[in-house]
Design a protein around this nucleic acid. Structure first.
Length: 412
DNA sequence: GCTTGGAATCGAACCACATTAAATA
DNA sequence: AGTATTTAATGTGGTTCGATTCCAA
């Protein structure tokens, strides 16, 4: 990977598709992601203009550059002057938005050198969403409209409250700073500033006020029963994704304020999809299988650092074993302390102690937590529940047994 | 700081057989 | 094409046991 489009290798890469793990130029992005309904769902964002490897999650207004969390940290996290730069959250989009629509999502979009003079512009500018939808007729076309409307509806930057632009170190943008991040207005729930949500499904989440009315990090766990839940009903009922208790247990953060709910609920949503590389702070809604699977292939330790003790990561089974955390790449760092690039800071000792306390609390809770097994066939369970056993093993009917679930007596 | 041994924890394996799905007549 | 029969695979829970981790000496 590098500066060039992974697909055509000719144009400079502009956007990053996590699902495809590819950096694409605008024309290829459109071509690739207009192929079918599934690909249209891919959530894309700008590619980091510094490393050209990771998706960007903020744009430095001062430097006019989009940055991934790592590069953002490197550029703004220290004590240099960059730490005062104003930055703006970079939203994701899906569907096949036109250049104009992308510029609506990203007001800085026209800053890109390729926009306006390349064939990308020709393609992007000449095609409207309606045209795309007309090209692919019927329901497919309607889907395109939906996708595109999502892309546009996600972000109406013109409504952004400029006063919320944030500056300062990116060390803890999610933890303590995100509430001040300049987020697209439309990405927040209508009528409720509590939860930032991005994309269509996120909006669905937001519409359910009950979801975050009782949203207390202390009660949150990332429990995903199975893929069906994850990709199906759970998305319609987000509460199913959060079942009990680990977040504060692991990191010792207890957040009760509405603003905190907002920022962390957003993070939670991302992490609940197993998306550790939460450098997609603005695209938590894709909830697609591919994005979830990217968890293991694209560990992003930066996010772990930035999440800074505010997240836990759960495995697909809902059992948060240590291995699960390790699987997610970033997680191990959360448990092991500061990442190697973390500079010494006066808070470090406090952070270390609070983290160790948090880990202890997490372990305690984990001990007492009950994991419910999902029984696929009740009939089989019913039979197993009445079968006689010897040392836990099933025995042939009529044979001697040492355990009878019906009558806990021995036959010999 | 390093080693050692016991305790604690974890996860896979085992068992029989009704049920389910697939293949065949 | 639809039905009946046969074959193979699956899943269910309590217990055991080997492997791993933890912790104090």
């Amino acid at each position: 990977m590098g500066y060039m489009c992974d697909f055509c290798g000719e144009q400079r890469s502009i956007v990053y598709c996590r699902s495809d793990a590819a950096s694409l130029c605008l024309s290829c992005d459109r071509n690739v992601h207009s192929a079918n309904a599934l690909s249209r769902r891919h959530s894309r964002t700008l590619v980091c203009e510094r490393c050209n490897l990771q998706p960007a999650f903020v744009r430095c207004i001062e430097e006019k550059i989009s940055l991934c969390p790592n590069c953002d940290w490197l550029g703004h996290g220290g004590s240099n002057t960059g730490s005062t730069h104003k930055r703006q959250a970079v939203s994701c989009y899906s569907g096949c938005p036109s250049a104009a629509e992308l510029s609506t999502i990203w007001p800085f979009f026209l800053d890109f050198p390729l926009v306006g003079d390349s064939k990308c512009e020709q393609i992007m500018g000449s095609m409207s969403i309606n045209e795309v939808s007309r090209d692919s007729q019927g329901a497919q076309g309607k889907k395109n409209i939906q996708d595109a409307s999502v892309a546009v509806g996600v972000t109406n930057i013109q409504n952004v409250d400029k006063s919320t632009a944030w500056t300062g170190s990116s060390m803890l943008p999610y933890d303590t700073k995100l509430q001040n991040i300049e987020l697209p207005a439309a990405s927040t729930c209508a009528g409720s500033p509590k939860l930032s949500c991005f994309g269509a499904k996120g909006q669905t989440v937001c519409e359910d006020d009950s979801f975050y009315e009782n949203f207390n990090m202390d009660e949150v766990d990332l429990s995903i029963e199975n893929y069906d839940e994850l990709f199906g009903a759970a998305l319609d009922n987000p509460e199913k994704l959060f079942e009990n208790d680990d977040i504060d247990g692991l990191f010792g953060m207890e957040i009760s304020g509405a603003d905190s709910n907002c920022q962390d609920a957003h993070l939670m949503e991302g992490s609940s999809m197993g998306r550790i590389n939460g450098i997609q702070p603005a695209c938590s809604t894709a909830a697609s299988a591919d994005s979830m699977m990217s968890c293991k292939t694209e560990p992003n330790i930066c996010f772990a650092r930035q999440a800074h003790s505010s997240l836990s990561f759960s495995g697909l089974t809902g059992e948060s074993s240590a291995g699960d955390y390790q699987d997610c790449g970033a997680s191990s760092l959360l448990l092991m302390g500061e990442p190697p690039w973390c500079p010494p800071c006066p808070e470090s000792s406090n952070l270390a102690s609070s983290r160790s306390n948090a880990v202890m609390r997490y372990k305690e809770k984990k001990k007492t937590r009950k994991f419910e097994k999902k029984v696929r066939y009740a009939s089989r369970k019913a039979r197993a529940d009445v079968r006689r056993r010897v040392k836990g093993r099933f025995v042939k009917a009529g044979d001697a047994y040492d355990y009878d679930p019906m009558t806990p007596t021995r036959s010999y």
